[in-house]
């Protein structure tokens, strides 16, 4: 895995303007695609696939599964395109929701039988094999712990702490109130800490 800039950054001034403005460029591209414009589909893929893949990969710690989730989420986007209503919801909000649901479905399925050594190879070589394996082990332990949480808690924790989203945005994604987000996030994080306590050695935190 490598570090790279997302297609557009919510932390930049331009990103904030884009977020705060009523106009959703992804929605406009989606409507163009619905009319048969494949260039719009290409642009949407460039903008949305990296963030969907990153979200799924952080939750699942499995490259192959994350790719499947990304493809499935985008397939649902292509199918919903003709019925998309510009101005009702942002495409990114919709996509966060779909990826979160698909990822927690997979976490629920793997619950209890996740082998910590079954982690997909990252595409890029890490500085050292040992460091890479340690990172993979930590990410796999985190995914296994998320799998133990109730789905809504796992989604709230992942959106808050893995995607770095604010509570109002998470509330829109999960279609609940901000207070419910705060409650889910707090309970989820406490539960995560309790589950991971038994895995301090895997996390590399045992020698402190």
């Amino acid at each position: 895995m490598t570090l790279s800039a997302p297609p557009y950054d919510r932390d930049t001034a331009a990103g904030r303007r884009e977020q705060s403005a009523g106009f959703d460029p992804d929605g406009a591209l989606l409507l163009a695609y619905a009319q048969g414009d494949m260039t719009a589909a290409r642009l949407l893929t460039d903008r949305l696939a990296p963030r969907a893949l990153a979200q799924a990969a952080r939750m699942l710690a499995d490259r192959s599964e994350a790719e499947d989730v990304t493809q499935e989420a985008l397939l649902r986007l292509w199918r919903v395109a003709p019925d998309w209503r510009q101005g009702e919801a942002r495409v990114t909000t919709w996509l966060y929701r779909v990826v979160a649901n698909l990822a927690t479905d997979r976490l629920r399925r793997r619950r209890g039988n996740l082998a910590l050594d079954q982690v997909a190879e990252p595409p890029d070589p890490a500085p050292s094999a040992a460091a890479r394996m340690q990172t993979e082990a930590r990410m796999a332990a985190l995914a296994a712990a998320l799998a133990q949480l109730p789905a809504r808690q796992a989604q709230a924790v992942a959106l808050r702490h893995l995607e770095g989203l604010g509570n109002p945005e998470i509330a829109a994604i999960m279609e609940i109130g901000v207070e419910a987000v705060e409650s889910l996030t707090a309970r989820g994080k406490r539960a995560l800490a309790a589950i991971l306590a038994g895995r301090k050695a895997e996390l590399g935190y045992d020698d402190d």
Partner: peptide, 11 residues
């Protein structure tokens, strides 16, 4: 969580 958040995996 911060370590996981920093991970990017380009398609």
């Amino acid at each position: 969580l911060a370590e996981a958040r920093a991970l990017q995996s380009p398609p």
